[in-house]
Every structure is written in C-alpha cells, then in structure tokens.
Amino acid sequence: MTTWERKLSAGSVSAPARPASRTATRKELTGHQQQILATEVVAEEGAVARAGDYAMRVEQLAAGFGGFAAVDDVTLDIMPRTITAIIGPSGSGKSTFLRCLNRMHEEVRGSWARGTVLLGGQNIYAPGVDPVEVRRHVGMVFQKPNPFPTMSIYENVAAGLRLNQWGRVPDLDAKVQHALELAALWDEVKDKLFQSGAALSGGQQQRLCIARALAVEPEILLMDEPASALDPVATLRIEELMRELVKNYTIVIVTHNMQQAARVSDRTAFLMMGDDRAGRLIEQGPTDELFTNPRDKRTEDYITGRFG
C-alpha cells in the first residue's frame, strides 16, 4: 500500500505540508515555469513528495449550468500513473466533473465552476490561469471519435504540436510516429499517413484521437466514455491500450460500463445524484475493494444493478 492509500483507509485525508519554497499557489506562474513544475512532479521521485503524492487533487469542486448544479462538493485525489474510473448512474455529473479537470466545462455558455483543482501544486482555477495552458497538460479524448476531417492522419496528430512552435516543429515525423505507436495505430496507418482520418474505422478513429491527444505529451489524459461508441472488439483494444499507456501516463476515465471500470481501473470513484439533482462523491477507493466490499449501501446497490 502506498502512503496515500494508508492515509485513506485510516480515514484522514490531509494534504502533505507545503514547503516554504513553493510560495503562494495563487501566484501566476509563466507557462514555462508551469511546464517545469509539471514535469518535475512526474519525473523525480523525491519531487513527487514535495508537490504532493497526487498527480491531481480536486477539493470541493462544484460545477453546473445556470442555476443548476451538476456536481457538488467533490473531493478526490488522482494518483500518478494510475487509471481512475469515475462511475455512476446517468445524470450523476460524471462528464461535468471530468470536463472540469481540463477546464473544458467553461466552454459551454452559462456554465460555472468553483473549488480547487491542483495540478502539480498549482490551482488550475486560480485567477489569471489561462485554460489554454491547462489543456496542454491535461488532454482529453471524447466519447464520439472526432478526427479533423479536413486534415490527414499525419496532420491530425501534428495539430497540437504545431500550435506552440515557431516555424517548423523539430522531429515532427518522429513525434507523430511515436504518438501513433503509443496509440497502437502506427502499423495500420503508416502507409496512409496522408490520407484523411475520416476513412478509418470507428475504433481506429478513436485511437487516432488518442494519438492526437498524446502527441502534446500531457501529464494527465482524460477519457470521456471513450469506447461507448465502439464495437466490443474495438472496445477491448482501447482497454488494452489504456493498460499500456498507464505505465507512463495518468488516466481518468468516465464510464457507464461497470465491467469496464472493474477490468481496467486501479481506483474507482462513484458519483450519484442527490435529491437536489446534484452529483456527489459517494465513495472512492481501490477498484478491487470498491467492487467486492463497498462501504456505502448506495454503492453496493449501484454495483449490483439495483438501479441506474
């Protein structure tokens, strides 16, 4: 058991003491400094302890649209190089929660969010933080595969890389190839890199989207029901891919498929809608424990299929 898990089962969740050298988290860091910070978290063993054991820490996150709250008071830690599954019945705010982690939630008109989401010790919701920078570090794959139809496969993967580069991207070919290899798509497309992405099958398109997201080397990859639009064979391939990727990336996946969550994830969080129609975190923990020995009755009811 890691230190983190020990603390969790002991019932106390306290943030590791912040050293004085890492001053006020609300201070605006430059993009460059943030990048350094983020890589330190994953790269150095010791540094992990400095910035916290977590890859991402959510504190009392609430978000919704207009007068309506989709999620309320969610506090959760995402651990590095794990797959965390967010499960729950429809309407429990899983997707809304996920989209808060890379500040995509605010792209919808009328949306609001409050709370703290710490990435590498820095609150991504601090005033002055540009969502554009956040999204370089937290990537996303969507439910329905959405490759850009006007771009070739190559260009799709390169799309994110081209953004932050003056002029030509160095080693672009190698980077595109690497991303496609990570997504287990390289062999299938290496001879048709310059054809449109729309010509691929659904499962291939989704792996292309994964490659595209991975190309910019985010610390965390968010996946919003990535296999729900795919056939079972393609779904299995995506799940295998995820177990490969987690060796180097931290993954958070929203799924309505409990079996998938049980197969694939290291930790699971269960969200459920309350009487006020806002989703709350009911229970979280290592996947095995949550599924075999849930602590909350509501969790047990959901897992055993009594509702939702």
């Binding site: 995509m104 792209e107 554009v132 956040v134 996303m140 969507f142 994110g160 997201a213």
Partner: peptide
C-alpha cells in the same frame, strides 16, 4: 459540429 471545436480546444488551442 461542436465536437470539432472541443477536440481542438482540448489540445490547448486558443
């Protein structure tokens, strides 16, 4: 379709 915009924004585009 909105999903096209979302895909690009999620890559960290302005």
């Amino acid at each position: 379709p909105n999903e096209q915009r979302e895909a690009m924004l999620a890559l960290g585009a302005t």
